[in-house]
Amino acid sequence: MKVALTAKGTDLESQLDERFGRSQYFIVYDTETKQFESFDNSQNVSAAQGAGVQAAEKVAKLGADILITGHCGPKAFQALSAAGIKVYNTQAPTVKEALDLYLQDKLTEANSPDVEGHWS
């Protein structure tokens, strides 16, 4: 299973980016191989509009089953749901800590967006 996380850098020690659509990077962690890869999201960081939905499409194309991020707005949530991606919100400071919380089953799946659009 593939877990996507929003990150401010390219490795597991990076800070978790609390934004989804305008996250600087996405880190995709494979729970079977225990390997990860990072993907640049700078194009969406400066998107005029629709960063959240575009990011959802990108995360779906990366094959993610799960998204762990700080916050997720309504349009992004709708797009992620359409892709069958489950969303988990966390305030964990780093990617590694967020991932550990998830792997220890300490995160709860979000059933709705947790912020309005354009919250930051």
Partner: peptide
């Protein structure tokens, strides 16, 4: 459709496109 749209108003995250009319 999604690759054409510069406004991210139609995206295809799953098997079928999703339209965001407000965009």
């Amino acid at each position: 459709c999604s690759s054409f749209c510069q406004y991210n108003a139609i995206i295809t995250p799953g098997p079928k496109p999703v339209v965001f009319a407000e965009l």
